[in-house]
């Protein structure tokens, strides 16, 4: 049915739109989620970006500069976020 993908896309867009966002998404740490594409110049920035893309909420206590200067890059093509790699790509601060 040609209309089905379009309907799914519309529903997905609605669910992901800010107006439709509900409470924090509860995700067990063992669960796999689609992290999407994340490019950040620090762990903190990467975690917040991940949170905004998935609506997973975070509480982060920063104790050293490492958390503020550890570049992060995750590509959704890497098996739905199961794998990660680190290289410098400071696009999202």
């Amino acid at each position: 049915m040609p209309s089905r993908p379009l309907l799914s896309a519309v529903l997905l867009a609605l669910l992901l739109s800010p107006a439709m966002r509900g409470q924090c998404r509860s995700v067990p740490l063992a669960e796999t989620v689609n992290a999407g594409r994340i490019v950040a110049d620090s762990s903190v920035s990467g975690l917040v970006q991940l949170g905004q893309q998935t609506n997973i909420c975070f509480g982060i206590e920063v104790a050293d500069l490492g958390l503020l200067s550890n570049p992060v890059s995750i590509d959704r093509r890497q098996r739905l976020g199961l794998r990660h790699s680190r290289h410098v790509a400071p696009r999202w601060q």
Partner: peptide, 24 residues
């Protein structure tokens, strides 16, 4: 994987979930 480790690859941060919030 996003969090830094020290030279011995020991973790510097604990990760838990409290009230649907991932606490680092």
């Amino acid at each position: 994987g996003m969090l830094p480790h020290d030279g011995n690859n020991d973790k510097l941060y604990d990760v838990t979930v409290e009230n649907a919030v991932v606490v680092v």
